[in-house]
């Protein structure tokens, strides 16, 4: 009955390889496994052998330029996995102002009723967590956030909305997140941010990256010009305040 410590590696189509850590038992938490995945992705990106390397939820897919390199990398990736776990990746902590309820959060009251909470309690729980960005996918810049309090797990709408405005903050099942672009969707909408998660004209495209942490901050109105996203990127110093007052550091604002 030994722990299964080595992840599975298998092919996807003719030119992609998947490192799958689902069901990997042992002493590592899901987040620790995800950190190892980000770490391996960063190392392998430095090689010119890949068109792209895409993290998923406890898995990592390598898109090869040339399938002949796959056998070499199977050995490499196994070795990388066996190496010692990385230190915490120094990601950004990003505070995102959200206007909860009202026309921006049409499902806030329904979510509260579902859990027999007040709307204020839902907001308090939703803003009390630092969510980990596990990976980006589904839409440009869409972050898969880990860490929703289980008191807020809420089923998706029976009938998805045809169009949800960009910046909408919602809960779907065990996940919470922000819609980066206008799209259809079945999540319960509890608020909205004025944040641009994705900007095709910027160098990196996406505001968030795997390893970043997100905290929502409740504000009365996201249309106030003083409201902006706080990017707090220096986590190396323990004296760095994690939460800054909303108007403190406009120079660090992202966009």
């Amino acid at each position: 009955m030994s722990d299964e410590l080595q992840p599975k590696l298998f092919l996807l189509g003719e030119k992609a390889l998947v490192l799958d850590c689902a069901g990997l038992s042992g002493s590592s938490s899901k987040l620790e496994i995800q950190r190892q995945i980000w770490h391996i992705a960063d190392i392998c990106r430095a090689s010119g052998d890949f068109d792209d390397i895409v993290p998923g939820n406890n898995n990592l897919t390598f898109f090869f330029k040339d399938s002949k390199k796959i056998p070499f990398w199977i050995k490499q990736i196994n070795t990388l996995w066996s190496n010692k776990r990385p230190q915490d990746k120094p990601g950004k902590l990003i505070q995102i102002p959200v206007q909860y309820g009202g026309e921006y959060g049409p499902d806030l009251n329904a979510v509260a009723e579902y859990h027999k909470l007040t709307a204020q309690e839902v907001i308090a729980i939703h803003t009390s967590t630092q969510y980990n960005v596990l990976f980006l996918g589904f839409q440009p810049g869409f972050p898969y956030l880990d860490g929703l309090d289980e008191r807020l797990f809420t089923p998706r709408l029976a009938t998805p909305r045809l169009s949800i405005p960009a910046g909408s903050v919602g809960i779907g099942g065990e996940q919470t997140g922000i819609y980066p672009t206008r799209s259809p969707g079945g999540w319960q909408l509890i608020g909205r941010s004025s944040l641009a998660l994705f900007d095709a004209t910027s160098e990196h495209g996406a505001l968030l990256a795997p390893g970043d942490r997100v905290q929502f901050v409740s504000v009365l109105s996201i249309s106030e010009p003083s409201i902006s996203v706080q990017v707090i990127s220096d986590l190396s110093s323990p004296k760095q305040p994690i939460l800054k007052p909303a108007k403190a550091s406009h120079k660090e604002s992202s966009r």
Binding site: G13, V18, V54, G56, N59, T61, G137, F138
Partner: peptide, 11 residues
């Protein structure tokens, strides 16, 4: 139930 993972044209 599967964890979210990368997909591609042809999947």
């Amino acid at each position: 139930s599967l964890n979210s993972h990368a997909v591609m044209p042809g999947t």
